[in-house]
């Protein structure tokens, strides 16, 4: 069974269509990334899936239950983007409040609470009021609050945004551990490197519409024209961008220090052409690299393309 199934989901705010008939599914045990620029519809989608707001159209199901139903909420843990723990309560009280709201028995809640706070480096400060916590500590506590019910599906909206390096790393490590345990994780993030490192698949949303869904490696390749070959010759005068631009399949040439970067749709063919060119011109190749676009470049290409199409 799919852990999350979304079909034709739509949400409007007056004239603005925040989410426009999007459809996708997330398999059990999958770590699914949801990327998009600001205002693309990421948070609106998460808020619908976690039952905070209702859609205007379409269907969303969590483990077969309608999103927003008590059963769907019971199965899900949530780290909302705009959420805080209660500052006047201690970390422990916040955790036990969440356990009560999810119906976790007291003894199990205490055992899980101790373990989670220990894993997240908060055990020593568990009795301190949350108002004395740093931003990173608060975010780790919110994650602990989401995990105290041992949810099968975890929604995280920008969980590492604005955090110090150590807190962000700790949260990423925890997410890897949860994935290894078979939890389904729906992660929205601005951090391309984070998505690249963690996610099995990534969906890109722009202006409320889904632009692409694929594994990060495949998404990078999908951004055709962004693949390139870097070349450098032993003879400095051999690096002639105008001549290199005439090679077959080259769409653009960029000089980068003592190298040239040649953009192409077919790096394999270009490598052969470059070797032939070097042989015929009597040049010695000292560097030859094929470069795939980064996820960030793919993201920009896909969202800009969608923007110009729209």
């Amino acid at each position: 069974m799919e852990a999350i199934a979304v079909q034709g989901l739509t949400k409007r705010y007056g004239e603005v269509v925040a989410v426009d008939r999007i459809s996708f599914s997330v398999g059990e045990g999958e770590l699914f990334g949801f990327l998009g620029p600001n205002g693309a519809g990421k948070t609106t989608t998460v808020r619908i899936l976690t039952g905070i707001i209702r859609p205007d159209g379409g269907l969303a199901r969590i483990k077969g239950f309608p999103a927003g139903s008590l059963k769907a909420k019971q199965l899900a843990g949530v780290v909302p983007e705009m959420a805080n723990p209660y500052n006047d309560l201690s970390g422990w009280e916040n955790l036990m409040l969440m356990a009560s709201l999810y119906g976790v028995p007291r003894r199990a809640a205490s055992a899980r609470g101790e373990r989670l706070l220990g894993d997240l480096g908060l055990l020593e400060r568990k009795a301190s009021p949350v108002r004395t916590y740093s931003k990173g500590m608060k975010q780790r506590l919110i994650l602990a609050m989401a995990l105290v019910s041992e949810p099968e599906v975890l929604f995280l909206d920008e969980p590492t945004s604005g955090l110090d390096v150590q807190s962000a790393r700790l949260i990423r490590e925890l997410l890897r551990g949860l994935k290894a345990q078979g939890k389904t994780i729906f992660l929205t993030t601005h951090d391309m490197d984070e998505a690249n490192q963690l996610c099995d698949r990534v969906a890109i949303i722009n202006k409320g519409r889904l632009v692409a869904i694929d594994p990060p490696a495949k998404l990078r390749l999908a951004a055709s024209g962004l693949q390139s070959v870097e070349v450098s010759f032993a003879q400095a005068d051999g690096l002639n961008p105008a001549e290199l631009a005439r090679l077959p399949g080259v769409s653009e040439v960029e000089r980068v220090g003592d190298k040239c970067r040649l953009y192409t749709d077919d790096p394999g063919e270009l490598v052969v052409a470059l070797v032939n060119y070097a042989c015929s011109a009597g040049l010695k190749i000292v560097l030859l690299n094929t470069l795939a676009p980064s996820l960030e470049e793919a993201f920009l290409a896909l969202t800009e393309k969608e923007g110009s199409d729209g």
């Binding site: 808020r47 909420k73 909302p80 805080n84 999810y102």
Partner: peptide, 14 residues
Amino acid sequence: QARTLERLMACPVR
């Protein structure tokens, strides 16, 4: 205002 209501709304509580 304190951004605690959204967390409460996501809980399995009517």
